[in-house]
Design a protein around this nucleic acid. Structure first.
Lengths: 200, 200
DNA sequence: GTATTTTTAAAACAGATGTTTAAAATAATC
DNA sequence: GATTATTTTAAACATCTGTTTTAAAAATAC
């Protein structure tokens, strides 16, 4: 067997579901992109929805791994833990170029995949950032008036939005000015500088 | 006439298209939500796509207005002009609760509505922020090493992502901690603080 | 009051949808 | 090598899609 049909289906499904939407992709389209038969979707995954869920789980794989690795580093200073998250965002987007678009689609237009898959992983990330911010404030390193819950969203927003807006950004910026690493590092610097306690 | 069918269709279409997606909403569904006949969609807008475009234009109306008003204030100091954008984001989301979701959907999964409608407005907003940042750097108010193009995306991201992530945020934060104004003001403060030139 | 436009209703249209079926082909096991 | 078990295939399934057509009804304009 060259590469089993199950995997071929999952890998072909990711870009299709990410670039269109769950409803806009047809089973025939999926099968053709995977070089498989139409019936293979139902046979292996019980249907279009089952394939979609399996594909989502596959996309979250590197996140799950990274989170486990990261949890063990809870002894690092808060700012460095936030930096870990920043490089995780950049790194994951490199390994799974469609994940962020898929998650954004689930946030704006939740399907069954939101409850089934997305909801499992997002809170873990949230708690990781929340804890780092909490300790940073307690240690007097970050502004004491910070609303931590909202600040978590701000970090996720300033880092992730770029990857969603990239197609539009490519039309607005000179092509040379678009580097993922450059973006993440400047955005994180702005954020960190923004929450730091001002020197008296 | 109680409220002509054209408007009823547009207003009913916004939440449906925003919460699902263009492909996932059926014409029968649209007509029923508007209390109109199925044929009314084709009669007034030439079809589902025509209704979608008209609804998008309607959603951008307050943005177009605000941008005209704002352009006349180009004499304000850069930081205040950025603040204008921040309050525009909050205000527009209040008047058009579905706009940001619709735009995000068009960014992640562009339909014909992207070229036809969204592409007209986004660059205007981009240029407005870009210009303010440029002047701020030139005036020595913002960090001189700032990549301005990327910094525009950061501002849009830190302000807008919240409104996209709100459904998820509601499950992660104590209900009391979610105020649009509070979020926008803190997020903007973090950003502005983050790009400010450090005192020597 | 007549003429024009808008709205409604029900039906029909061709095409696409996700899923199932039963036979054929391949792989695994003994 | 024969016999299972698994996978693939093409065809058929009922259902839903957006749109159009017919017609009558209602509302508005002149």
């Amino acid at each position: 067997m060259e590469k089993d049909t199950r995997l071929k289906l999952i890998e072909a499904a990711a870009p299709l579901f990410a670039q269109k939407s769950f409803a806009a992709v047809s089973v025939r389209e999926l099968a053709q992109a995977a070089g498989a038969n139409i019936a293979a979707v139902s046979y292996h995954y019980g249907g279009k929805e089952g394939l979609y869920h399996a594909m989502l789980e596959y996309q979250f794989e590197p996140i799950a791994e990274a989170l486990e690795r990261i949890q063990t580093m809870s002894s690092l200073p808060p700012a460095e833990r936030l930096g870990l998250y920043a490089s995780l965002v950049a790194g994951v987007h490199h390994r799974r170029p469609y994940l962020l678009r898929l998650v954004h689609a689930e946030l704006t237009s939740p399907t069954s995949g939101f409850e089934a898959v997305v909801k499992k992983y997002i809170p873990q990330i949230f708690r990781f950032i929340h804890q780092a911010l909490e300790e940073g404030v307690a240690a007097g390193e970050f502004r004491p008036d910070l609303d931590i819950g909202l600040a978590v969203i701000s970090l996720a927003g300033i880092l992730n939005f770029y990857f969603v807006a990239k197609p539009m950004a490519r039309q607005l910026l000179p092509a040379s000015g678009l580097s993922d690493e450059k973006y993440v590092s400047q955005a994180f610097a702005i954020y960190l500088n923004g929450i730091r306690r001002e020197k008296p």
